[in-house]
Amino acid sequence: MKTGLVTSVALHAALIGIGLVSLPAPKAFETADVEALPVDIVPIGAITQMQAGDSAAEPADTPAPQPTERPDTVEDARTVGDNDVDLDTPPTPNESPRPVESAAAPPPEPEPAPEPDPAPEPEPAPAPAPQAEAEPAPPQPAPEPDPVAETIAEEAEPEPQPEPEPEPERVALPESAPVPQTRPEPPRPRPQQTADSDSAFDEDQIAALLNQEDDAGGGAQRSRQQAALGGERTTAEQLSQGEMEALRSQLSGCWNIPIGAEGADGLRASVEFSVGSDGRIDGMPRVVSSSGHRQFDESAVRAIQKCDQQGLRLPAGKAEVWSRIVVNFDPSEMF
């Protein structure tokens, strides 16, 4: 046993010794010095979507277009902000509005109207114009029951604009706005004003009724804010892939492929349609590129119309994109 033990100890000692000498620390792996590559995850909307603004301006929290110069003070101005001082005599209060059958009030006019419209604008002080409706002194005699006059009067009434409304701040588009599942309710049809008065048909009356609203300029109000970085106009809102897919699945539910076209390959029709702000399709869907199969094209158009009847569910807040939607109808893709 002694020999064995001695030999064993000697062998182990030798082995450990050899190991310590000939098995040195393993060489460290050579790794090239690579500089860290900065990677940003940027939503594509940051590039494709742009707010109106000034391309040379600094980025700002609230987007704003290029500011216009402050408008010149208007003498005898009646809107707050248009003049430097308050007038001594406030403008004559207008006669109290009489009930008008017009239900929908004209929307608040965004224009600050620096240049007063010459014709209907009541000039209070200097020119005692023969305009009956704005005359300050005598209370208007007998207001004619004529609806035309009424509406004209209503029209002429200057809207009391407390101050030139600053342009509603353009708020940054939220990345993911909650999408209402119901479409906006279409405005109710205006009650027919002349429905019952069929006895007296007058062309002028019609004209007066039709022109109840001033043309709205579409938000051309001057900006007084500091310009923010942006493009010339707000552009490029896009339906996301998911929203596009949702629309496609809606449409495919409405689509009845004509018999015989189901198995056919290469049938593909692009149909363009536009959706108004009420969520309804404006006009007829238009076939942009035909499949060459008339029934197939018509079925695609019918699908859109059927979905429109059921109510298209489109994401809210992307009205610009709705205005023109092109959908490709391809049996192999939509099912």
């Binding site: 046993m1 020999t3 064995g4 033990l5 030999t7 064993s8 100890v9 062998l11 182990h12």
Partner: peptide
């Protein structure tokens, strides 16, 4: 474990002899 190894090798050598 090193001692066990030493001892087992001692036994192995001894037994072999």
């Amino acid at each position: 474990l090193i001692f066990a190894s030493v001892w087992s090798w001692a036994i192995i050598i001894d037994k072999a002899i």
